[in-house]
Write a protein that binds this DNA or RNA. Structure first.
Lengths: 174, 174
DNA sequence: CCTATCATGTAATCCGTTACATGATTAT
DNA sequence: ATAATCATGTAACGGATTACATGATAGG
């Protein structure tokens, strides 16, 4: 057991998802990511094979194989895993500000024509906003409490999509 | 000359900065990053040693050593480098949406107490906003045109900082 | 003078991306 | 049936982070 590995955001995403699903294959995890967190912190699907393995070696997950068929690996969180996650969650805020890291904004910074870029950015951001609003409605109808973490995070996404639309649309208008 | 390397955002940042400064050491680049782009796309200082070397081997930069003292490396952009940058800038928009990737939002998503986190996030975002507004004033007074790329990008930063403040302040209020 | 802090750099590690590949399902 | 797409996985590579280290400069 390779102890004392460093836990990255990827690690916490896997741990967090495995508190929601009792047992999951990497492919299940992929679907879970796509349904939620992936909207504001996405992962390559191959990380969902590598990371659980890493976490298993460190004792944060338990691994089991399917008996039949493909004998896929099924992961579940251990007590140590829960403890690591809880520790992180209750450790209080992390002291770093997020960065925009928008590749198109980077182009604008270095002199690309803002109008062409802006016009192309509005529709996808509008689509993403509608997607978020639909998801919000679904969660609300599904009985999500107002302090549900996923819903709260989603509302950050909605706010920022609105801001991107305001920004790019303003630029597209000259 | 190792040709056909892949150019990453880091590469374009280095190339872009070297069109603004004729010749720069890694340390100069560090200062240039800190003064601008770094606000929305930051780099480790060690990348500013490794990346120019990579770009030099590929022919996008030229390298010269100081004659005296520390004999530091001085980099400048070549014609090929300018061409690569211009090609990227005029290639049109890239088709990806940026992600929030806020580690504190990730905690909220997985159930951390939003109030404690929210309260801690407001002051740094307010500080960042003021910093941006000061910088905007400086640029405007410095005679930056309204379509200056740096200024335009900065205004995206301002909008998003305002949005973060709205969001976290709202959560902090219950 | 001494000691922080800034300036400058190298090297190793490792996470994340990219490339590739094959088994199952579904649609036509 | 056959193509297309979904599901599932491995392996290599490389960029980015981390750790470390030493030379200059300024403040006390």
């Amino acid at each position: 057991m390779e102890d004392n590995i460093k836990l990255t955001p990827t690690s916490y995403i896997v741990l967090g998802l495995l508190t929601q699903a009792d047992e999951a294959t990497p492919y299940d995890l992929k679907a879970l990511v796509a349904a939620g967190v992936g909207n504001f912190w996405s992962l390559q699907h191959t990380q969902l094979y590598a990371e659980p393995e890493r976490l298993t070696k460190a004792g944060y997950l338990a691994e089991r194989r399917e008996e039949t068929g493909r004998r896929r690996k099924l992961y579940s969180i251990t007590a140590a895993g829960r403890q690591a996650l809880d520790g992180w969650l209750s450790a209080g805020p992390v002291d770093v500000l997020p960065e925009l890291r928008d590749i198109n904004l980077l182009k604008v910074f270095f002199g690309a024509d803002p109008r062409a870029i802006a016009a192309s950015q509005v529709p996808p951001h509008e689509a993403k906003l509608r997607e978020y609003e639909d998801l919000e409605r679904l969660l609300a109808e599904g009985g999500a409490a107002d302090d549900d973490g996923q819903l709260t995070a989603l509302r950050a996404g909605i706010g920022h999509e609105q801001e991107w639309i305001r920004y790019w649309a303003g630029l597209a208008d000259d």
